Computed example of a mutant assay.
Amino acid sequence: MKIPIRTVVIDDEPYSRDELKFLLERYGDVEVIGEADSGEKGLEVIITKEPDVIFVDIEMSQMSGLDLAAALKNLKKTPFIIFATAYPNYAAKAFRVDALDYLLKPFNEEELDETMKRVKERLNKNKVVEKSEPTIAKLAVEDERSIVYLSPSDITYLFREDRETIICTVDRKFYSKLPMKDLEEKLRGYPFFRTHKSYLVNLDKVEQLIPWFNGAYQLKVAGRKDEIPVSRNYVKSLRERLEL
C-alpha cells in the first residue's frame, strides 16, 4: 500500500475549501490531513502536521498566501506550495516564492490532474535522494537517569497505556510521555503500521496473524509472547502490506 500524499488546504472561503477537498479525495493516494481559514492558522497546521503539499489561496486577510509561503522558508521541512486562487495576476510573484504550481478558480479537473502528477514526480525524486543518503537517526527515550537511543529496527511494537507510550524491543520496555501520534510521525519512513488506535507495530517483526472474533485479528511478533490486537478496520490494509 502506498503512503498517501499528506495535504493541507488553506482558504478563507469555506466553499472553495470544500470543493478542493472533494476533488482531492478522488485520488486514492491523497489524504487531506488538515485545513485552515487563514494564513495564520494555516501556518500552525503546517508546523504541527508537516504535510507534503499545501493548497493555499493568495488573497486572505492579515497573512496572505504569499506571506505564508515566505514564512515557510524558515521551516526545516517545507511542503510543496500550490496556489489556488481566482486571481491570475499573482503568478509571477507566486513562482518567486518557489510555488510548484498555480491553479485558478473555478478548478479545472484536468489541470488539477496535471498538478498532482507534478507533485508525485517531485516527491518521487526526493525519495530517491533520501534513499541514496544513509541515515543513522535513532529514537531517543528516557531510561531512569540516561537517554537511550533506539534503532527503529530494534523496536517490535509500541502501545499507549494510561498517559504513557510503551516502546517494546525483544527484551525490554521503555516509557515515553510522547503521544502515539507523535512517535508514529517520528517513525515515518520505517515499516511501522497502526493495527489499532493504541498499537503501532514493526511489520518486519510480524510472525503470525491469528483470527480472533468479529473480523478482528491478533498479531504475534518475533521475540515476544504478547498478542497484539488488530482492529477489523485495519486487517485488509495490513495483509496488503505483509503479503506478496
Results as ranks from 00 to 15, higher is better:
96 R>C: 05
83 F>L: 00
76 K>W: 04
90 Y>E: 00
122 R>Y: 14
97 V>E: 03
81 I>N: 00
108 N>Q: 11
137 A>I: 13
130 E>C: 04
145 R>H: 12
137 A>V: 13
138 K>A: 10
66 L>P: 04
118 R>P: 06
145 R>P: 07
82 I>P: 00
130 E>G: 04
88 P>R: 03
77 K>P: 02
97 V>K: 01
148 V>Y: 07
85 T>G: 01
123 L>H: 06
117 K>C: 13
82 I>F: 02
94 A>V: 00
76 K>V: 10
124 N>S: 14
98 D>G: 03
134 P>S: 08
128 V>I: 12
130 E>Q: 15
127 K>P: 06
139 L>C: 05
126 N>T: 07
149 Y>I: 06
108 N>V: 07
91 A>Q: 02
114 E>V: 09
77 K>N: 14
122 R>C: 08
142 E>S: 14
107 F>A: 05
81 I>S: 01
78 T>A: 04
124 N>Y: 08
72 L>G: 00
119 V>P: 05
65 G>P: 03
109 E>T: 15
79 P>M: 00
93 K>M: 09
101 D>W: 05
101 D>N: 15
149 Y>N: 08
106 P>N: 05
121 E>W: 07
86 A>H: 03
135 T>R: 13
123 L>S: 09
67 D>P: 02
111 E>D: 12
124 N>L: 11
98 D>S: 14
89 N>H: 13
93 K>S: 13
107 F>S: 06
64 S>E: 07
104 L>W: 07
98 D>N: 13
147 I>D: 09
76 K>H: 11
82 I>S: 01
109 E>K: 15
88 P>Q: 03
110 E>N: 14
95 F>W: 01
119 V>N: 09
76 K>Q: 13
111 E>L: 09
77 K>I: 12
